[in-house]
Computed example of a mutant assay.
Amino acid sequence: MPPQTPPRPRNELIEWYQSIPPITKAVFTLSIATTVAPALGLVSPYHLILNWTAISKLQLWRLITSFFLNKLDLGFAMNLYFSYRQSVQLENEVFAGRTADYLYFLLLTSIMQLAAARYLDLLVLSDGLIMTLTYLWSQHYRDVPMSFMFGIRFKARYLPWVLVGYNYLTPGGNVVGSLVGIAAAHIYYYLTTTYPSQGGRRYLSTPAFLQRLFPPTTARGGFTAGGAFQMWPGNQQQQQQQQQAQRTNVFGGHSWGRGQRLGS
């Protein structure tokens, strides 16, 4: 009887990383790499921020790295964790089977933020990226109960504004980038969900080349009143989310911390 090869030991960290859906995995990985590299002295953060003069000289990577650059601290770790959680829910539930549509959402809102940054002199757009995820998540999970510091309770639809208010009241907080992210996500949500559901035309459609790169897969869902396919979490999922939200608060379950200025 030939000797049996012992089973290879499991690496739960690798298995978890491999289980992350593709777009969330890319956002998660870029956030870590772009933040850790400057902290280790591998690259200067000033080579990663938005600098339109440098971009005109074909330093095009700045158009991407400016969305993922953060200060390496506890606030970044918490932001990363909760943005990961929200992105996983969006990709696996709201955009289930429609990876191209989720990528289009991120690309479109990023272009809007870059256009605004050109005129608002924003150098880093990581706060805006987080808020686009938060705003879209809050619209699709509007009635999930949440609580803020001192036990103030509210529904998830108000989460983006609670976080903006907290950042505004925090010394050194900068809310401009967050507001730009909210505005970009609101425009996307209105044109793809709100306006079509009211009988209006759907003006935003995912380009064909993205559909070819990420073909849609089978997923349970339905069509909105405007004719757009929409995947909503089931009642059991919503109950689980509500129970989890009731056990946490914004700082325990959705603690974003305050924004950091570059170099602070």
Rank of each mutant, 00 (worst) to 15 (best):
L74Q: 01
S126N: 10
W161E: 02
L114V: 14
P22H: 09
T99H: 04
S197I: 04
L63N: 11
L213Y: 15
L204D: 06
P196G: 05
L30F: 12
A100L: 04
G259W: 02
L69C: 05
D143Y: 14
F229Y: 13
P45I: 05
P207H: 10
F28V: 07
L169G: 13
Y135D: 06
F82I: 05
H140Q: 05
L125K: 04
F214W: 10
T248Q: 10
T170P: 10
L106E: 07
M146D: 00
A33D: 04
W137C: 09
M112P: 04
P9L: 00
Q237N: 10
R201M: 10
L120F: 11
Q113M: 15
F150I: 03
Q198K: 14
R153M: 04
W256C: 03
G226M: 11
T134C: 12
A228Y: 02
D143L: 10
P160Y: 00
P233R: 08
L60A: 14
A96N: 11
P22E: 06
A115L: 15
A219K: 12
Y166I: 15
T217N: 02
E15A: 15
D101V: 03
T170M: 13
Q198P: 12
A77L: 13
Y158L: 12
P171V: 13
M149S: 09
I152K: 05
G181T: 13
L58Q: 08
T109W: 01
F95G: 09
L163C: 08
A156I: 02
R212P: 13
Y168G: 02
S44C: 12
E91L: 02
L69A: 11
Q4D: 01
T193C: 01
R212S: 12
G200S: 02
G257H: 14
Q246H: 14
L72H: 01
F154Q: 13
M131H: 09
E15M: 15
G263L: 11
L129R: 07
R98T: 12
Y84E: 01
Y141V: 03
Y84G: 01
A26C: 14
Q242H: 13
L129C: 06
T134R: 00
G128Y: 03
M78D: 01
Q240P: 03
V176P: 06
P6K: 00
Q230W: 01
P21N: 10
Y158K: 12
L159R: 00
V124M: 03
